[in-house]
Each structure stands twice: as C-alpha cells, then as structure tokens.
Design a protein around this nucleic acid. Sequence first.
DNA 1: CAGAATCCATAACGATACTG
DNA 2: CAGTATCGTTATGGATTCTG
Lengths: 135, 135
Amino acid sequence: MCYTWSMEKTLLQSSAHSVLIARCYSRDVLDLIADKWIALIFALLEKHPTRFNELQRAIEGISHKMLTQTLRNLERRGIVERKIIPTIPPAVEYSLSSLGTTLIPLMAALRQWAEEHMEEVEQAFQAYEEREEKA
Amino acid sequence: MCYTWSMEKTLLQSSAHSVLIARCYSRDVLDLIADKWIALIFALLEKHPTRFNELQRAIEGISHKMLTQTLRNLERRGIVERKIIPTIPPAVEYSLSSLGTTLIPLMAALRQWAEEHMEEVEQAFQAYEEREEKA
DNA sequence: CAGAATCCATAACGATACTG
DNA sequence: CAGTATCGTTATGGATTCTG
C-alpha cells in the first residue's frame, strides 16, 4: 500500500498528496469516481432503488453497454448493490450501498456545478474562439 | 439552449435534471469537470499559480501531452488563466480564474474521498473477486 | 521552458446479435 | 428484462521530434 498524505506530511515533511502519487490506489479510486456517467446514475439512485431499463431511459444518450459496464464497476467497488427480483421476466434493482451514499453530495455537486455554470463556460468558450480568429 | 432543471420542473412538472438531457450543454460541462487530471491539477493551482513543468513534476504519471491538452481545455472554458512571463527561456504560469476558484471545494472533495475511501474500495473489490471465484 | 505536431498502440464506445 | 459477447470504429493517450 502507498502512504497517505497525512503520513507523508508527518514522515517526510512534504506537502504532496497521495493522489498525486501515480501508484497509490487512491489514484485509481479518483479515476473511478471522476466520471460523468456515475454522476448521472447517482441522480437516479440517490432517490430510490432503480431498475436497469429505468436508468437507461432516464439517462439520455447512455448506451446499454456503458450502463452495464459502469454499474458492474460500481458494484465491484462496493458502491452500488444489485438485487435480483425473481419474477418472470427477471427484474434487477440497483441501489446505493452505505459506502455509495457517502458519495451523494459530491455527485450532486458535480451535476449542480455543471448546470449552474454552463452559460459561463459556453461564453468563455465562444470568447476564446473569437480571440483566436482575430489572431 | 436547452431548458434547465428548474424550468423543466416548472413547465413540465417533471423531475428530470438537465444534465440528464443528452444535448444540454451542461452535459458537456459535466464531462469536462468529471476528470481525474483536472482534480489533480487543482491540487496545485488552488495553492498558487504554477508553471508547466512544476505541474508535470508534481502530478506523477501525467504525460506532457495530457497536461498541455487538459490545461488548454481548461483555459478555453475560462477555468484557468495562462500568463506568459517574457523571460529567456519563456516561463508560463497557470492560475485559476474566478470561475475556476468556484470549483476548488469540489475538486478537493473528489481527491479527499478517493484518499479516505481507498481501503474500503480495495477491500470491496477483493471481496467481489473472491465471491466470483467461488461461483 | 513551453508547446505544437506527428505517429502509433490500445482502450473506449456504440451497434448488433444472442442467451436465461 | 437484464445481461453477455463480438465486431468495428473512433477517440485517447504516450513517445518522439521539432520550434520559438
């Protein structure tokens, strides 16, 4: 295991964070959670357990494959739980684990920032393009 | 422009968020900010303006190309500012714009979650693998 | 030092078809 | 309905080289 930020600060008097260390597992975790599809999946799961097709219908533009893949990843990492309801045809319900619920505020904040600042970002982008054309 | 969540809620009595709409620009913004390299770059820039090579040295494992690309993206979207200091050889300093600073808490939270929960995630992953082997 | 540009491997993704 | 598997395309990212 790699050393954490607090350990490093104490032991080495350095200000480096462990996510800055390439081989630290926290880097993989960061890579896992810094993902737009997860932020969108959370928009649904934070409210109530949701079925596969319900998720796909709600999240416009996500492919069957990406949704399966992302859900499987989250399940493997202990962030979502998968419950099979033995009906015919079978239904599968996804929900947040207790670890997953600790991510709710973060994921909500990502979505919110995107929605709140989309105009600003769009304007900055257009302004940049205009500046480029002049140059 | 697409309609926002609040507009939709008011107009359509729907609970859909605008990030859930594929063509809404907020989706692009979400895609922009849900990125591990950005979270890591913020770890440096939130403290003080930083030069290109300083960033690359601090962020282990980021390639020259990815760093340029990510910084250029952030600059275009008005999140970071680029200041050329006319020395020989030239120095370039990156810093957060006022829009960029509004992202500081979010990016810090992503890094922190990753560091704080890496053991839990790792254990969940191993437990999952063991369960799979049995099956 | 900063960065643009090229080439190349491979990983991501979407579409499709097939199973319990 | 949920999920897996395969295929083909596009996008991503790294290594390298070249410039002000």
